[in-house]
Write a protein that binds this DNA or RNA. Sequence first.
RNA 1: GGCGUCGUACCCAAGCGGUCUAAGGGGCCGGUUUGCAAAACCGUUAUUCGCCGGUUCGAAUCCGGCCGACGCCUCCA
Length: 460
Amino acid sequence: MLYFYNTLTRKKEFFNPIKAGFVSLYTCGPTVYDEAHIGNFRTFMFEDLLKRVLILSGLDVKHVMNITDVDDKTIKRASEQNKSLRELTEDYTQRFYNDLDWLKIIPADEYPLATLHVDGMILMIRTLLEKGHAYKEDDGSVYFKVDSFQDYGQLSNLVFEEQLTTSRIISDEYSKETAQDFALWKGWKPEDGEVYWDAPWGKGRPGWHIECSSMSVEYLGEHFDIHCGGVDNMFPHHENEIAQSQCSSGKPFVNTWLHSEHLMVEGGKMSKSEGNFYTINELKSQGFTPENIRYQLLSGHYRTKINFSLAKKQEGEKVIRRLGDFKVRLMAELNQDSQSEDLPAEYKIFKEKLFIDLDTPNALAVFFEYMRKMNTKIDSGLINIDEIVSALLFVEKFDYIFGIIPNDDITPDEIKTLAKKREAARIEKDWALADEIRSNIDSLGWEIKDTPSGTKLSKK
RNA sequence: GGCGUCGUACCCAAGCGGUCUAAGGGGCCGGUUUGCAAAACCGUUAUUCGCCGGUUCGAAUCCGGCCGACGCCUCCA
């Protein structure tokens, strides 16, 4: 039983896929004119979480994420750097994939590039023109006629007559009938250089919103289950997608819209135009691990603003170490065979938390309490093999969702050899030598712990 | 100006009218355990939920006002 907060209705709703057992999921991807920042990845991480929870619940997911590889910014950046549009966007797209991989985000099934799907967009624009939802301007641009779609504003809950005319609207360089009309097609201008496609109404390039409408239809059909993005995409991007898609197909577009809140940095929104952002590479060089970033991003609920902070890094390190130690401890107790495949009762509660609008903070709390309970049992020696096995199964499920338990043995041989020498010294009760070796290991960046189940090494 | 979110311990963060003398995590301090250290475990850290009123038998939770932070109103995850 899955429930999600649907932006369209502003309520938590029971999730019922269009086709039983299958979910069609579209998530707005990056504009590849620069490296993505941690704020962007908050959204991609949330979408990954959503996908993992859908899969955990037993559904098959088809996930499509677009890559915006043509727009004002990409064209501008390419020309500044004296590169072709293709060179620039391929580079940043690759970096984006690398960052996703590093963060342990499950890849989408499809990453359609806007530039390879212009034909579909032209078709959709033609339909909109034919149906009277769009009009051409003298410069070769085509605009969507917002007045022609009665439900415009339903997602973002905006009433346009009352809107303040902001400087951005006033300075809008395109001519159109009414301020809120938006571009489906942008007529070619000299600064676009080589970047243009031929359309029946003249050469130019697609507007931003049309790519998602067109590509989602192509990969998921006219009517699909879930569409998500950051809150800032609610308006205008998603609002415009709804308008385009519903007017062209005459059918409902998306059943469930999910939006993640912004990531803040020093109390303000992280954004490229403000210049206050961290890229993944910057965080890497600050010593962040993927697990630590995942912990920071997943320990708050996706619909609340969270502040990304270096201060929370220590907290993350501690939590990750505890979880890793717990897993190692369970493995060490795994000394007999067991046929048990049962998960502990707490797993059911854990799942229920996640199934109600991705409640990661409470799911974490459930797991931590369980972990404490199990540690106590192991301490007391009153644990049986079935409990160990089911705990390990729970750990596996837990980490499938959170992905914050680091991968196993990465200890270099040099350190292992030292640890063995120290073990020998300890058996001889040569504490001085044992301590000397320990401090030696310490200075090499590794920590040694003597536990009831043996000596353990971990990276500091 | 319009729409909207948030303000809970030293820090992060649940809570959505009674089970709240408020979960979970980090930190601090004290303890058990241990060759020492670490880990693990136990205890301690909010009679109180930005402030002021109201509704109610009952409010962190609902309503009103105020203060403060933040977001959207066509670049934006």
